[in-house]
Each structure stands twice: as C-alpha cells, then as structure tokens.
Design a binder for these strands. Sequence first.
DNA 1: CGATCTATCTATAAAAC
DNA 2: TGTTTTATAGATAGATC
Lengths: 204, 204
Amino acid sequence: MGRRKVEIKRIQDKNCRQVAFCKRRKGLLKKAKEISVLCDVDVAVVIISNRGRLHEFSSNNSLTGMLQRYESHVGAEKEINAEIQVAEFSNHFEVSGFTTMGELLQTTERQLEETNADGLTVTDLIHLENELQTALIHLRARKTHLMLESAKVLHEKEKLLQEEKKHLEDNIASIKKNTKVNEMSDLPAPHMICGQQKVTLNFF
Amino acid sequence: MGRRKVEIKRIQDKNCRQVAFCKRRKGLLKKAKEISVLCDVDVAVVIISNRGRLHEFSSNNSLTGMLQRYESHVGAEKEINAEIQVAEFSNHFEVSGFTTMGELLQTTERQLEETNADGLTVTDLIHLENELQTALIHLRARKTHLMLESAKVLHEKEKLLQEEKKHLEDNIASIKKNTKVNEMSDLPAPHMICGQQKVTLNFF
DNA sequence: CGATCTATCTATAAAAC
DNA sequence: TGTTTTATAGATAGATC
C-alpha cells in the first residue's frame, strides 16, 4: 500500500522499521476498532514493541482486564516471576502458581533441561499434575451437572406454562360457546360469551 | 475500501455484518502478522464473534500462553458464577455437536497414551497439549455463549407465556364481571370436578 | 455459507517538512 | 518523533456463482 511493494519480512533498516511500526500500529488498532464496531464483536489487540512498550486496543472490559493482567506480567519481571513461581512451586507445592497443563509441562521441560537443578523431581510434577487434573474433573462434572439441571428446570417451567395457557384458552372457548351475545354487550370482546349451556371443560 | 464508503457503526443487516466480519477478520489477522514480521514486535489479537467463536493471532508463544491462561481463568470463573447466580442453561449444548468435558478429557488421555507409546519428547507433548488447550478454549467460549443464548431464549419464552396467561386470565375476569347470574342458572356449580382433578372456576 | 470478481476506498511507502 | 503529501499497493463492499 505504498509507493512500492514491500516483502513481508523483517525490515532491515532500523529507522524504516520504526516508521513502519508507527504507521502500521496505528492502522492495526484502527482496524481493530472498526471491526469491533461494524461487526459487533469483542476484539483485543496487544502490541509490544521490541523496546518493551505496550500498545493495545480492547473493545471490552473483560478483555481489558486480560490485557492489564498481561501487562503486569510483561517485561523483565516476567522472567523473575517465572523463576519465583518455580521456586515456590518446588518448595511448597503451591497449586495456585500453575494455571495450565502447558505451564506445568513447560516447567517440567525446563527442569529436565537444566540438568536437575534443585529439588523438583518429575515425580513431584506428576503428583501435582494429577491433583490438578482431579480438581478439574470435579469442577467440570459439577458444572455440567448444574447446567443440565438448570436446563431441565427451565424446560419443565415452560411445559407447565404451556399447559396452563391451554387450559385458560379452553376455558374461554367453552364460555364463548355457551353464552348469549346480548348479555355481553359491554365486553371488549363480544365473541367471548357465557351462555346457558353446560360448560364443558376438557382439561385433562 | 469497497464499492462505497461505509460508516463505522454497527452494520444492521445480519448477513452483511457476518460477511464483513469474515473479510475484516481475515484482514486484521493478516495485518497483525505483517506488522509482527516487518517490525519485529510481539502482537496478539483476540476476536470473539457475537456467536461466541474465538479467533486469534499471536506472534509469540508465551503471549499466547498468557492470553490462554487468562481466558481459562476468567472463563471458568465467569461460567461458575453464572451457574450459581442464574443457573439456567438449555439443551443447546446437547445439539451443539460438542462432546462433554468428560469425553474430551477421555479422548485427550487416550490420544496422549497412544502417542506416548512412540518415543515422544516432552516438546512434542507440550505442542500437543497447547493444541488441545487452544481447542478447549475455543470450545468453551462457544459452549458458554450457546448456553447463555439458550437461557436467554428460554427466559423470553417464559415471559411471553406469562403474559399470554395473564391476558387470558384477564379475559376470563372480564367475562365473569359482565355476566348475569340468572343467565347461568343451568350452569354447573362453580366448583366442578373434571375427571379426577378438582378445578375451581371463579367465573360467577 | 464460502469463493471469486471488480470497482472503489483505505492504508501506507517514500519523501519532505 | 510526528505530520503532511502523493503515488500506489492492498483491503474490501457489493455482486455473482
């Protein structure tokens, strides 16, 4: 989109690269905003320059939270935090430090690669992994159960209301069938009449 | 950038919006990739369509991991809170074609066991795990959305039925109010037995 | 839906300030 | 570093299949 076509590979000239970054960053954030508005979707964009500056767009609070959370972890602190987490983990077996299996496995890999630095054995990791797995399974089972239960309740509610509705409609139909017109002159709906014939209710 | 200029506001026509979303999403992700390569920066883009589908680009694994971890945490918290507070979901997730969490876990475990038979490295496992994690996040985002959507539909249904019911009751009340008792002398007593169910009619 | 085709609009490379 | 200008590459709205 410029005077000449550019190949998509790292721009060698530092200055050109910086200029391109400013321009394209602006464009990208604009595009993100546009799509979020035009198409009514949630979009989050995070850009971290190679100098560590953070630029972001977020169409949504929860995503903003995500970005803030990310921001708090970014930079040099990230490495340190990771080290601290690993240390705490190996010392106290704190589950909370690890959020995903991926992280767990990554830690495992690091430990394996680091020629068995301190303490943390693969057995320990497997133990923790099992604990996490179990907790997840329990949580998911409970969640699924609650969801199914709720759906059932709502469906039963609906069914009941449908039945009630039918009953009421039948009532009105019966009344109409058995009522004289002349008695109903002041009713909003003249066709709904009570009459002298026996009302038949076929509720059940 | 098309046949005519478009105002940046929510596209009303649903179909147009969807088409625009597909095109612009592709464009946005492409741009994100380009800037990350050209300018040597880390970029993450997360898009969640209003149907709950998740699309993302990430130039960097750790960034992806970070976002995914965030998603997992907040997503899970949100789901649980929603369950406890509202506890209303419908059978949509039965129709959605997705397996349950339990099934997914079982499948995962089976796959891991099978692949593990061959000499897979930890790196291979991490890669596989990340793929599964991503799939899981997509699935959860979509599932949660479908469930909430279904609950909404059911609630609307219920509300409608309640209104209909009230209307019908009002009709009956009007009829009662405007009907002379002497015209009803040959009607059954206000309390009638239909089959085995006692039905109380307050018509008169 | 999704792909393909254009006319048109937009982004941006390069240059200059 | 940011803005403006200009020429041009790229994105995409609307249409068609």
